[in-house]
Design a protein around this nucleic acid. Structure first.
Ligand code: FES
Ligand code: FES
Lengths: 153, 153
DNA sequence: CATATTTAAGAGTATTATATCTTAAATATA
DNA sequence: TATATTTAAGATATAATACTCTTAAATATG
């Protein structure tokens, strides 16, 4: 449902919410904690930075940090930034302009469910997520495990 | 959320449910009614046939038809056949084995919503869909409009 | 039996998504 | 100011999905 980029963006954001809010966190460090490629994660976090969800700082001791309090950033903010709002706007049968012309047979049921999804995503903040269980994966079970562990040394 | 293959499979199935159940319908005809490439649709319908949702018949007057009554085939059956059950099984944050080891922070909310999605897809049959509005698109607005209209002439 | 019609199956191409690499820009610190 | 560190941006590579084409198999009909 969510793209891999989006999932990694969420996971990184949750991790940032679990850390000290005031200091910039090194992307290399985040990527190794999440077992995601540094290169890939960098691209994703650039997207979140350009959306204003993160702030970044270059140079020694640089990195990224949340631009707002974790309680003010929602799950939805991050999904929209990376995957856009397709999921929350489009017809489940792919018809153009969901509901505008003639709604498809699934329209009512789908928009109801989609509304619940939207509400769920709006209600959940990074603060909520950060207080939940640890999202880090062990090397053994991580689907994101990188093959080359010596990236950028 | 659903792949294009899946959406086209659904649209074709709904169309079949709107037609005479006893006769085989030509795939070329379905593809032109839906403004989908004959080649692409053929592949998708082969998938539904091998899953036992459709029956096919080769040769003159051949084609495909529903293997059961429209009221007995659910939206879910078709989604599972084409896209698999990822959507209904996986963790929204991509963690392996959703809920088996340590559930992610979204687990409860997501599984609740996913349950509603599952129920929705199980409740809706092709009969329901066929009685709804017309799914055919006009040439002007169809996102599936094929560029070359003279396929296989 | 020969031919035309139609789906099946597999191969091939195109487009998009995912992932990596390289170079540039900013900045801290010696 | 020179160097090392770190993100930004753009180019490249790989994988997955979408889509097309070709050939084979089944079958109706003359
Ligand atoms: S028109 Fe299909 S879900 Fe709205
Ligand atoms: S573990 Fe994430 S939704 Fe179940």
């Amino acid at each position: 449902m969510l793209s891999k980029s989006c999932i990694n963006g969420l996971r990184a954001s949750i991790l940032l919410a679990q850390k000290e809010q005031d200091e910039f966190i090194n992307i290399q460090k985040i990527s190794s904690e999440l077992n995601v490629s540094f290169y890939f994660l960098t691209k994703i976090l650039q997207q979140l930075t350009s959306s204003g969800i993160l702030e970044s700082y270059k140079g020694p001791n640089g990195g990224v940090k949340l631009a707002q309090n974790p309680g003010e950033i929602t799950f939805r903010d991050i999904v929209i930034s990376i995957d856009g709002d397709h999921l929350l706007k489009e017809c489940i049968l792919g018809l153009p302009g969901c509901g505008i012309e003639k709604p498809c047979p699934m329209h009512e049921k789908w928009t109801a469910l989609r509304g619940n999804l939207q509400r769920l995503m709006e209600d959940v903040t990074l603060k909520d997520l950060a207080n939940g269980n640890d999202l880090r994966l062990s090397d053994e079970i991580s689907p994101f495990k990188s093959i080359n562990l010596n990236i950028r040394n």
